[in-house]
Amino acid sequence: MLFFLSIMEEAERTKMDKIFALYAKKMHQAAFAILQDNNDAEDAVQTAMLNTCKHIKKLQDPSDNNTKWYVIQAVKHTAINIYNNKERRYKKETVLDEDFSIEDFLERYHEGSNLSKEIAKLSSRDRNILMLKYVHGYGYSEIAGILGISREAAKKAGTRAKERLEKLMEKENQNND
């Protein structure tokens, strides 16, 4: 059996090729900001790209914000896991939370609707679950796989976050009335 690898025209490059070309350095930058080590940051990028490859079918356009958000979140999530594993290995107490890497939206996020401000106040995990569910269209099983949690935990967190937002919006609507 013979294997032939053809050189692709720019238009025919695979999604992963394009994602790598567009975001690899940004991903490394994001990972380095957490890990402060180039080798660890490369490991984080590689793991994130591998996870992205597994869900590549859901990412329609490599250059759109959906994909950009997905890969940046993936590498940050991975970098935090690497950091925490290293810290635990050296029996250190410091453990990073997902929210470590997110700017303080409450202080800076003055634009946007009331609902988006409430979303900004959610924990990073809850926000990511809602983003994956309602923007990217993943099911809870897929979300669980992406975030490394159980399906039940993903569903519970997603449902509660949505209910919390609904209650907040309802209260706000009542206050406005």
Binding site: N65, E103, F105, G112, S113, S116, I119, L130, M131
Partner: peptide
């Protein structure tokens, strides 16, 4: 709203 937050991030 999620898209708004995502784009801001």
């Amino acid at each position: 709203a999620l898209i708004e937050v995502r784009d801001y991030m």
